[in-house]
């Protein structure tokens, strides 16, 4: 058993994929030197010619990956910060997400776009964003956002082996913050399944990424006060695991959804609508959301950044109200 951080989980999985399959290659900015977060450190020397620096042009990183995947390669693109992926929005939205649909599967794109997302790193407006809602809105692209190192390993492997475009979101605050004992090869897993990480009868907290860890911390505090929560780690944001969400909502009757993304139009709205539509009779309280405020994400100054970010205290406070309802 080895203790592994998130960034080590990503790096080791990339290394294994490059070693296992010579169709796999990495394309992105600064990846030959190891990348700004060191996700690809040492890989260029070990896998000659398959870790490729790109010019600073995100549309090209994604568009070239589309072409290479169509050709039969297995590109793993890196967008240095999720905040810069929008220059490639057109290639993901107009092309990648529809490639299979518009050819009825004659053509398809086994490609991954990895990108660090999320706040809490003093990154200001353009190094802190949550971008998932824009991209999870596109049928045809899978969006994955793990929380624990073991899941980073199993889901990144699954993403690379998937015949569809996968947007693989890595929460940058967790890269070196979160450690886990990880054993052997990545577990066999399926994209599209959420996991219940903690069981409790009083309410359900649904979260992903950094907020999953904050939710677990809040659940620990709540437990000491006698409130026992179920915590669901979404893992995949599209296609979303309706079954697990609805099952938990029906079991506890109270649901709190947590995300860093701004409230309006965030994924929480869709999850809430799903529960309202399919589990209304089981609810004992209105669905609650803890999310970023509706301001452009996110201010740089640490006091304002803290104000923006949901955290364990804010989650626990909302959960107490919900439990008491």
């Amino acid at each position: 058993m080895a203790s592994m951080t998130v960034i080590e989980a990503v790096r080791s999985t990339l290394d294994e994929a490059l070693g296992r399959d010579d169709r796999v290659f990495i394309l992105g900015e600064d990846v030959e030197a190891g990348g700004v977060f060191r996700a690809t450190e040492g890989l260029a020397a070990k896998h000659t010619g398959r870790v490729i620096d790109s010019p600073l042009a995100e549309s090209s990183i994604i568009g070239i990956s589309i072409g290479a995947a169509h050709y039969g390669m297995r590109p793993v693109a890196e967008i240095q910060f999720a905040d810069f992926i929008h220059a490639g929005f057109d290639q993901l939205c107009s092309e990648a997400s529809r490639w299979c649909y518009r050819t009825r599967g004659d053509a398809y794109l086994p490609m991954v776009v990895r990108t660090p997302w999320g706040g809490g790193v003093h990154g200001g407006q353009h190094h802190s964003q949550s971008i998932e809602a824009y991209y999870a809105h596109m049928p045809g692209i899978k969006v994955v956002a793990p929380a624990f190192p073991a899941d980073y390993r199993s889901l990144l492997r699954a993403a690379i082996e998937d015949p569809n475009p996968v947007l693989f979101l890595e929460h940058k605050r967790t890269y070196r913050l979160i450690r886990q004992e990880v054993e052997g090869a990545p577990a066999e897993t399926v994209i599209g399944r959420a996991r219940v990480t903690r069981n409790g009868p009083d309410l359900t907290i649904i979260a992903y990424g950094l907020m999953l860890h904050e939710s677990l911390a809040a659940a620990e505090t709540l437990s000491s006060e006698g409130i026992e929560s179920t915590v669901v780690d979404l893992l995949t944001l599209n296609p979303i695991d309706r079954e697990t969400i609805l099952e938990s909502a029906r079991a506890t009757g109270k649901v709190l959804i947590v995300h860093e993304d701004t409230l309006t139009g965030g994924l929480g709205g869709e999850i809430a609508a799903m529960i309202a539509e399919h589990a209304f009779e089981y609810l004992d309280a209105p669905i609650r959301r803890v999310a970023g405020p509706d301001i452009p994400p996110m201010p740089f100054h640490h006091a304002m950044e803290d104000f923006f970010m949901p955290n364990r205290e804010k989650i626990a406070a909302a959960a107490r109200e919900l439990a008491a309802y």
Binding site: F25, G49, R50, I52, S59, S60, I62, G63, I64, S65, I66, G67, A68, A69, H70, Y71, G72, M73, P75, D90, Q91, S94, E95, R98, W99, R102, T103, D106, A107
Partner: peptide
């Protein structure tokens, strides 16, 4: 190669195919 109505996107797809062929 399948194409959309968005113009010039296919130039990057061509570059990707060319990169794959070269590799």
């Amino acid at each position: 190669v399948t194409q959309s109505s968005v113009v010039a996107t296919q130039f990057l797809h061509a570059a990707g195919i060319g990169l794959g062929a070269q590799m």
